[in-house]
Simulated scan of single mutants.
Amino acid sequence: MNAPPENASLPSTVPGGPRTKLLLATRNAKKLLELQRIMDKALGPHAIELVGLSDVPDYPEAPETGLTFGENALLKAREGVRYTGLPTVADDSGLAVDALSGMPGVFSARWSGRHGDDKANLDLVLAQIGDVPDDHRGAAFVCAAALVLPGGKEHLVEGRQVGRLLRAPRGEGGFGYDPIFLAEGQTRTNAELSAEEKDAISHRGKAFRALAKVIAKTV
């Protein structure tokens, strides 16, 4: 096991008061901003200093071999603690399409065969359910979020956003499958919502808010 780097001590002190440094095990800048917004709102703007994988020394990232979102989230969070010594949050999330028997699921980010190619993934899902009637295009975004502490304690929560898939993308915001996902009770896709509106109803927003309550008590 690698020793934590010397700069991984916590809490760190920054202008505005002491803040606890927390690693979010991702290189996705949009996801980092999303969690920071949620944490600031839930815990206060000076409670957490959130850093991503680009902000810490590189370490070998284990492949996401879990068969569930929860397994993958815990795997990534454990690796973050192991190599940085920081309390680590990781999530695994994706789209579960009714007509595809819950797929792409844990393969959502690489459904087209190229990891992180949002357009190719979205286009493939649309093609696969092209003949599915509107009233059978149900889907859900699912997010499992894990917190692993240096002492070994682990916490896992899940958030879901239920809705249906449109036949063509709408909106310029968000990422992933947001442009084709219309949440239950909404008239705009996730990609047409403001960041704050999306946070309030999204699967990741629900999971991270639940995790924020845990973080407030444990970190």
Rank of each mutant, 00 (worst) to 15 (best):
M1E: 10
A3N: 10
A3G: 05
P4F: 11
P5F: 12
N7Q: 13
L10W: 15
S12A: 13
V14Y: 13
R19C: 14
R19I: 05
T20K: 14
T20W: 15
T20C: 11
R27P: 00
A29V: 10
L33N: 14
L33V: 01
E34N: 00
E34A: 00
E34K: 01
L35T: 06
L35D: 01
I38L: 13
M39Y: 15
M39H: 00
A42V: 08
A42N: 05
G44F: 03
P45L: 00
E49Y: 03
L50N: 00
L50G: 01
V51G: 07
V51C: 10
V56S: 04
V56P: 03
V56M: 09
D58V: 04
Y59A: 00
Y59Q: 02
P60G: 09
A62D: 08
A62W: 01
F69E: 12
G70S: 12
N72F: 06
L74K: 04
R78D: 08
E79M: 11
Y83D: 11
T88H: 05
A90E: 07
S93D: 10
S93L: 13
G94V: 12
L95A: 03
V97Q: 06
D98S: 13
D98G: 01
A99D: 05
S101I: 00
P104W: 07
V106F: 06
V106K: 07
S108E: 08
W111E: 04
S112Q: 06
G113L: 11
G113D: 10
H115C: 01
G116E: 10
D118M: 13
K119M: 03
N121W: 04
D123P: 02
L126N: 13
A127W: 07
Q128E: 15
V132A: 06
V132W: 04
V132F: 02
P133A: 11
P133V: 09
R137L: 02
R137P: 06
R137I: 01
A139F: 03
A139Y: 03
A140C: 14
A140F: 02
F141L: 14
V142G: 00
V148K: 08
G151I: 03
L156M: 10
L156K: 09
V157T: 14
V157E: 09
V162H: 14
R164D: 00
L165T: 02
P169V: 08
P169A: 11
R170P: 02
E172P: 00
G174W: 11
F175K: 06
G176W: 05
D178E: 12
D178N: 05
P179Y: 12
I180V: 15
F181I: 08
R188P: 07
T189C: 14
S194G: 15
A195P: 04
A195Q: 12
A195D: 15
E197I: 06
H203N: 14
G205Q: 04
F208T: 07
R209L: 14
A210D: 14
L211W: 09
L211T: 05
L211Q: 04
A212R: 11
K213V: 03
I215L: 10
A216E: 15
K217G: 12
V219F: 10
